[in-house]
Design a protein around this nucleic acid. Structure first.
Length: 485
RNA sequence: GGCCCGAUGGUCAAGGGGUUAAGACAUCGCCCUUUCACGGCGAAGACACGGGUUCGAUUCCCGUUCGGGUCACCA
């Protein structure tokens, strides 16, 4: 902390999943740094060897990149404080843990990890957690046991009296009684540090000025402060973020639906929409009422004061709306490319008018994943279903619609040139000759189109897509089905 | 259960001692449209409760209730 540059870090553990909550932490960390022209660094916290997941680090890189959260230092690009992967920093942690022992703020502990139960007998000074049995162990004896190869951990020696308080940039000043704090483990018996310890050491060494993380860490922060004090290090800013919860008020989990970035992408959401969405979960710009912002705009807008304290419910409804906003605002060629990727797969050799399809789809799609179902009627030919011959607006019932369609077919089959003008003219003539109102003719047609797609959910709207919008000339495909139906 | 944190419509939220308490999503209605959408306009809907402080509390303080977090050799 040799200067006043803001420096934040995203410190995920490589689990293979980028949870929405993690992503939001990364976003806010990025934003807090960039809003002040600071640096954002990436550090991989892989100190749990049992949880190692192959390829998990790639998920992190890929997600950050896709969201535009580019880091200034990290395992992949290096930096002045590397290495940036904790499993490669083991000597640091041991060195600092031993320094703490020498300073009297930590001690080796030989108690087996399975012995927690015995502390329930409440003989010790505290009635919870570890009973501090090894707290005053003789250093000489300890050294002997360590040299003999006995398994041990290093624990932090918490003060027995007094209180510790710190000021969080979001939650304000928080105070806890020191007797509430457990003598937590700093270095595990396998030589790896615990999260709590590695975090403090690395954040200091990497000169992090603002520790931004979820509020689930709020209650362990006093232990961090004690660690900083024991080392004689300056205490950084703490910025705890409100949790993201599900619609039932419970922690967001699988049963709420998609909760990871990859899930959301697979669901058809745009990365930009996801970023915009989570930016507004627990934060608001203040007097500004607009809600659609690019990452660049957010960088200029973001401020810690706007962060809320209460947990925020993740709303898929709102995400849907945001996604629609982003889809509609997409430059046409970009949108068409997305459609092409999907139709190529769905249609294979079949010909279709890509521009038309993209054009008609753009104002109608909520999620990319909806598209396949929306256009599937183009390749599937399903039998007409009488239930679908119903149109409230045109006062049609199944009986009537079927009659009109049947009457219409001779007219349509004469059409050679499928252009807007010709088609509309044909329908108009047919309407006149059959003495039907225009609305009824179109209504029946629509019902007919709808009948091509009998899959549940959105059948009608999908069928109508090709039949409507500006390019009526492309009705041909659908109407050919009708002619034969 | 102990400790910590929180509470403005169903959801995200602005605001803050005196306001008709913004806006967005969702919902409903109307308009536009040959239909579905898009779009436009509008409606309904909130300061958890009880005590203080104050001329005046949704806003400040205390309590209650409710909600969340945390109590690992996980992060």
């Amino acid at each position: 902390m040799t200067n006043n540059l803001v420096k934040t870090r995203f410190a995920p553990s490589p689990t293979g999943i980028m949870h929405i909550g993690n992503l939001r932490s990364a976003l806010y960390e990025y934003l807090i740094a960039k809003a002040k022209g600071g640096a954002f660094i990436l550090r991989i916290e892989d100190t749990d060897r049992e949880r190692y997941v192959e390829g998990a680090v790639e998920v992190i890189y890929r997600t950050l990149k896709r969201c535009g959260l580019n880091h200034d230092e990290g395992p992949d690009i290096g930096g002045p404080h590397g290495p940036y992967t904790q499993s490669e920093r083991l000597p640091f942690y041991r060195q600092y843990a031993e320094e703490l022992i020498h300073k009297g703020h930590a001690y080796p502990c030989f108690c087996p990890s399975t012995r927690e139960e015995s502390s329930v007998e409440d003989e010790g000074p505290i009635a919870f957690g570890y009973d501090r049995r090894c707290r005053n162990i003789d250093p000489e004896k300890a050294k002997l046991r360590i040299d003999a190869g006995e398994s041990y951990v290093i624990r932090q020696k918490m003060p027995m009296t007094g209180e510790t308080s710190f000021t969080d940039d979001v939650y304000g000043t928080i105070t806890v009684q020191n007797k509430e704090l457990e003598d937590q483990i700093l270095l595990k018996s396998d030589g790896y540090p615990t999260y709590n310890f590695a975090n403090v050491v690395d954040d200091h060494l990497m000169e992090i000025t603002h520790i931004v993380r979820g509020s689930e860490y709020l209650s362990s922060t006093p232990k961090y402060c004690l660690l900083y004090e024991a080392f004689g290090w300056p205490i950084p800013h703490f910025v705890h973020l409100p949790l993201i919860i599900g619609e039932d008020g419970k922690k967001l989990s699988k049963r709420h639906g998609s909760t990871s970035f990859d899930d959301l992408i697979a669901d058809g959401y745009l990365a930009e929409a996801i970023v915009n969405m989570i930016a507004f979960l627990g934060w608001a710009p203040g007097d500004e009422t607009r809600e659609i912002f690019s990452l660049k705009e957010l960088e200029a807008l973001f401020h810690v004061e706007g962060i809320n304290k209460a947990p925020a419910v993740f709303s898929y409804d709102k995400l849907n709306w945001m996604n629609e906003q982003y889809i509609r605002a997409l430059p046409f060629h970009e949108w068409r490319d997305k459609i092409k990727a999907i139709t190529d797969k769905a249609f294979g050799e079949q010909t279709y008018d890509l521009d038309m399809l993209a054009h008609v789809l753009q104002p109608r799609v909520t999620k990319l994943s909806d598209i396949e179902a929306m256009i599937s009627f183009l390749t599937k030919r399903l039998p007409l279903s009488r239930e679908l011959f119903f149109n409230k607006r045109a006062k049609l019932d199944a009986e009537k619609a079927e009659g009109i369609l049947t009457a219409l077919i001779p007219f349509l089959s004469k059409v050679e040139d499928w252009t807007d003008t010709v088609l509309l003219q044909t329908l108009e003539e047919a309407g006149e000759q059959l003495e039907l109102k225009k609305g009824l003719v179109m209504g029946a047609l629509r019902a007919g189109l709808a009948a091509q797609q009998v899959t549940p959910g959105g059948a009608v709207e999908t069928a109508v897509i090709l039949g409507q919008a500006e390019s009526l000339s492309r009705l041909d495909r659908a109407i050919q089905y009708l002619r034969e139906a």
